[in-house]
């Protein structure tokens, strides 16, 4: 039962990331929808831990890159080194060759280094020295970044933000969670001993199940109405792209799977909308809106068909 497996995964993750059920679930939905995830938050709220937990639970081969401003593309994708024995260049794969790549503080790197990673995300392959190497299957990037108003950062442009299916933030834990966190064991220890929840092949069956969640014509009407309103309706100066529409549907399917349903409801779409649309929409007016306010503005303007 794919939905039972999904439930097991969320429960296990929530035991470590305390008080962040919704964010954990969104992150899991993002992966089940085969999308890349961007976590945006201040340091120390558990971004990296979340990535670690997901890798462990899903049994994915994990790599981590700490982005810095002096980083070069070769530091990510790999480099060709001259081999004296056969007198030729050999390609040494970089850390990008992993199933789950944690790109920590991606906005610290220069645009050049950022774009090397983002290209890999889109194509799921790496081209270097005139040759192409396929990345492992599956391939996910979980990138974290500090909010762009901090010093010494290179904010991602819209075109690159669009490659992330979701952008979420974790925020401070509430009082009870904070207490449990302070009183409990070291999270790092817990992650290190976290058992893999999935049997081989189970992850693929989850992907498969998410892809086959039923989407009825009435729901497509609704998604289309949302997209149309974001483009032409009052209140938005930048609307959702067709890619965003596809992503929204995929994310809603994964969300329905996590909810144990075999069909997508408008509620599923509305639930993932802040994470999927928050970094793609722009509202009219001078004050920038947060993802939740943006999504609420869109949702409340479009009646259910």
């Amino acid at each position: 039962m794919p939905s039972r497996i999904a439930r097991r995964l969320t429960d296990a993750a929530s035991r470590i990331i305390l008080g962040k059920d919704h964010a954990v679930r969104l992150a899991l939905a993002c992966i089940l929808a085969r999308g890349h995830l961007l976590i945006e938050d201040i340091p120390g709220v558990g971004k990296t831990t979340l990535a670690h937990v997901l890798a462990r639970l899903l049994g994915l081969q994990f790599q981590r890159i700490q982005f810095t401003s002096d980083m070069l593309p070769a530091d990510i994708i790999g480099v060709s080194v001259f081999d004296q024995r056969d007198a030729s260049f050999r390609f040494h794969p970089g850390p990008a060759f992993a199933q789950l790549l944690l790109a920590d503080e991606i906005n610290r790197a220069t645009p050049k280094a950022q774009s090397a990673l983002l290209e890999a995300m889109e194509e799921r392959q790496i081209s270097a020295e005139g040759q192409t190497w396929r990345l492992p299957e599956p391939f996910f990037v979980i990138a974290t970044q500090n909010p762009a108003d901090q010093i010494g950062t290179f904010p991602l442009p819209e075109s690159q933000l669009d490659r992330f299916l979701m952008r979420i933030s974790l925020g401070y834990p509430d009082r009870a969670a904070e207490r449990a966190l302070l009183a409990g064991e070291d999270r790092r220890e817990l992650v290190a001993h976290l058992p893999t929840e999935l049997q081989p092949g189970e992850l693929d069956s989850l992907f498969e199940a998410a892809r086959h969640i039923h989407v009825g014509p009435r729901l497509l009407d609704y998604v289309q109405a949302l997209l149309e309103h974001s483009r032409a309706g009052a209140g938005f100066s930048l609307g959702l792209s067709p890619r965003a529409g596809l992503g929204l549907l995929a994310a809603a399917r994964a969300w329905a799977l996590l909810g144990g349903r075999d069909h997508v409801l408008p509620e599923d779409v509305q639930a993932v909308l802040p994470a999927v649309a928050g970094h793609r929409l722009r509202a009219t007016g001078d004050t920038p809106l947060g993802p939740d306010a943006l999504a609420r503005r869109l949702v409340e303007a479009v009646p259910l068909p």
């Binding site: 409801l265 408008p266 509620e267 509305q270 949702v299 409340e300 303007a301 479009v302 009646p303 259910l304």
Partner: peptide
Amino acid sequence: RHAWEGPLD
């Protein structure tokens, strides 16, 4: 019911 509100919500 709000016009945009799904049945479960």
